[in-house]
Computed example of a mutant assay.
Amino acid sequence: MSATNLQALLRLLSQNAKVPLATAMSKVKELQAADLDSAEKISKVKVDALNPIFNDDKICKQVLAAAKRSAKKRAAGDDAGAAPSPKKKAKKGDLLFAADADAAAAASPEELEAALELPSSDADEAELEQTVLFTNRAPLALAFVFTLLKYSMPTQPLSSRLSLAQGYISITSRARAVYLGIESGKSAEEEGFGEGTPSVFITGKEIKVLRRWGYVWKRAGDQLPVDGSSAAEKNSEVPDEGDEPQVGEDEQPALWALDLEALKKSNNHAPIVSSASHRSTANAALPIYTPQSARSYLLRAFDTAPPSTDTQKKRSAAARNAEKESNLGRLLRALDLLYQSWATILPPEDLDKRTWGWYVKVRPDVADGVAGWGGKNSLRLADILALRRQG
């Protein structure tokens, strides 16, 4: 596939179909292998043909609809895969807003956090060392950052850690896309969106955030701070109605990562406020990186290596998905063992600084530049375990 065709396909997925850029990149190779590497080809198939690639009915329908629109425009003389006119505003329903996020999957915070639980594994060290996965780089980086936040921001609930990790990956992916010429123009933040907004830094990237004042959840058993539970207990205190919550410098209420690119596309300049008494009116219009999208991405990203095409054809989609979930559980256990080994002697800021280097040492080998985007290769959990502190 030429660089031009690859860029057109990525624009179709990420801009027209509104598939997260990291997800779009990871699916390019699979679309190419299925001979679905253009809007015209995709527009001629049914949703069922896309399901083995995306494993998500909603995304499949979005991609098919976008492909049909692009193919229709090309037939009328427009450029295939061109981005929507900048004058056309995104529909409000296309964005996921902070006002609805906490209730998106459940009726209470406890139920939301429970619905977001990720697979776990009781595999011993010997089993982990023999495990070889098949994946691309973006979901592995997401898994690293997600695990890091368990130790660097231990008072954050699962939903917030997923949102923040997804925000980090999306920002990093866009910067890479601009560098390679796949995307162009200034970022939303460079254009002033989110100015004055609270932020956190994760492995050198500034993530704009929305404070979820008053969000109280039941802590999961795996969310224990390295240095005890006092911070969590303080964070669970509910402020009096109408009062501004008092949060220490090293403590944060639950957070959402703001999706400034979605905010830019919506042409929404709603103010971002920190006052508890005014948060419902302005912050309701702000799109966020949802924990559900991060969780879904992780669940479908880790195959067993080497993948056997003949075997996969004989197995049901449910069996393949179950295997991916098991693989994710093993990966998260290996990452947890890595961070546990260092957390007893390193402060959170040092864990943060080391995370990118650890990821680079174990990430799958792929081709350089545009050709490597979405490329998959083997990931040995033994390499992750070898990064643990010795002695």
Rank of each mutant, 00 (worst) to 15 (best):
D102E: 13
A104E: 15
A106G: 14
A106P: 01
A106E: 01
A107H: 03
P109I: 12
L112T: 11
E113T: 13
A114V: 11
A115Y: 01
L116V: 01
L116P: 00
L118A: 10
S121R: 10
E125P: 08
E127A: 15
E127W: 04
E127H: 13
T131I: 08
V132P: 00
V132L: 04
L133Q: 10
F134N: 10
T135A: 10
A138T: 08
P139G: 11
A141D: 10
L142C: 05
A143S: 15
V145L: 09
T147Y: 09
L149S: 09
K150W: 13
K150C: 09
K150F: 13
S152N: 05
M153Y: 13
M153Q: 11
P154V: 13
P157Y: 04
S159H: 10
S160Y: 06
R161H: 01
L162H: 09
L162P: 04
S163T: 11
S163D: 09
S163Q: 09
S163V: 07
G167P: 09
G167I: 10
Y168E: 08
Y168L: 10
I169P: 09
I169F: 04
I169A: 03
S170A: 15
I171H: 05
I171V: 14
R174I: 14
R174E: 15
A177G: 08
A177N: 08
Y179K: 15
L180I: 00
L180G: 00
L180V: 00
G181I: 12
G181K: 14
I182F: 04
I182G: 00
E183N: 07
E183D: 12
G185E: 08
A188P: 06
G192H: 02
G194P: 03
E195T: 13
T197F: 05
P198E: 10
S199Q: 06
V200Q: 01
F201R: 13
G204K: 02
G204V: 03
G204F: 03
K205M: 12
K208R: 15
V209W: 03
V209H: 02
V209D: 02
R211Q: 09
G214K: 07
G214F: 11
Y215S: 01
W217C: 01
A220Q: 12
A220F: 00
G221I: 05
Q223T: 03
D227V: 10
S229Y: 06
S230C: 07
S230L: 15
S230N: 07
A231Q: 08
A232C: 10
E233T: 05
E233K: 14
K234T: 11
N235W: 01
S236Q: 11
P239F: 04
G242I: 04
G242W: 08
E244R: 11
Q246A: 12
